[in-house]
Amino acid sequence: MQLDLFALFQIPEQYTVMLQRYAAAMILLAVLIIVTKWQGIGIGHKLIVGTIRGTIQIILMALILVYIFALSDLIVIFGVLTFMGVFAGHTTRSNLERIPGVMRATLPGILVGALSVMAVVVVLEIIDWRSGPGEFIIPMGGMLIGNCMGLTSLVIDRMWSNAQKQRPLLETALALGATPKQATELTIRESIRSGLLPNLNRYASLGIVSIPGLMSGMIIGGVNPLEAAIYQVIIFIMIFLSAMIAALITSRLFLREMFNERAQLTVPPPEP
């Protein structure tokens, strides 16, 4: 019956197979939502919205990717990366909507972290981007932006929740004359460390446990495996550096949201 409908609307067979696969993936999503609800993790709504939004975004991106990959003007390419960075900043704000001033702190961090590292890579020609500027710079830049987004979100979430849960310790530090930066140093350090941990694990098990997408894609695309492997190591280093820069900038900027000019804590106590 379903296939008849596809035939009726003259949907090519390759799309019907694809839609059936997508529907099968939705069963897995339903299982995931049930498990998160059962465990009280409370991210079901975000998963549904994220799936719908993500599907639309990635389809649109796939449709325009052909044109983006064909880009050769570096200014336009970095313009596209800036747009992606702005969207990443907006995403951090949506995911941490209970916390004020998130985007003011994450956006500069993500943009400076990802774009500066990408710019150095381009200028020093650490990757051979000249054969296809858009093809190389945009996916790699996207990876950096995605990782910067993840780490900056985590740092802000930790700083805020620590300021709420460990308020007495934070005020003890301030009462001894610590600056907001000194008082939150430990929290920032720990959140950067734990935020980088998943990537550090992947880095340590590179090629044995994890076979990264970029390297696989390059090999499938006909690139020499040795070259693809070296690119993957370079990408990891770029990810760590850009995420670290983004996290440090974001954490410094976010202090302005947590403390006023008299270095008084402005984070409200947790709601009972």
Partner: peptide, 16 residues
């Protein structure tokens, strides 16, 4: 504020 709090030091009720 930091200089003031070095000279006027508070020991909170809950010693953390």
């Amino acid at each position: 504020p930091q200089e003031l709090r070095r000279r006027v030091v508070m020991v909170p009720q809950e010693a953390k």
